[in-house]
């Protein structure tokens, strides 16, 4: 089990960020997500595994300085 934006979400062995985002509406808007305290950017969504019990935050938009 993981948490996504504070809500419980099922987890399975081998789940990548790309897999996780299939369950999210308008997932194309998320270019960056945070797993616990580590930021992961879209180029790495496909190869980054989501660890069990992790807390995932979908970062809505990067707005710059």
């Amino acid at each position: 089990m993981i948490k996504v934006n504070g809500e419980k979400h099922s987890w399975y062995e081998g789940m990548t960020i790309k897999d996780l985002l299939k369950d999210v509406n308008n997932s194309h808007l998320y270019a960056v997500i945070r797993i616990n305290e580590k930021h992961i950017s879209r180029p790495y969504f496909e190869k980054t595994l989501v660890p069990d019990n992790s807390e995932v935050f979908l970062i809505p938009m990067i707005a710059g300085g």
């Binding site: 194309h28 808007l29 270019a31 879209r42 938009m61 990067i62 707005a63 710059g64 300085g65």
Partner: peptide, 13 residues
């Protein structure tokens, strides 16, 4: 960049 920071909106989104 304080006037317009559009990289992400343009290039990524």
């Amino acid at each position: 960049h304080d006037e317009a920071w559009l990289i992400f909106l343009d290039m990524v989104h």
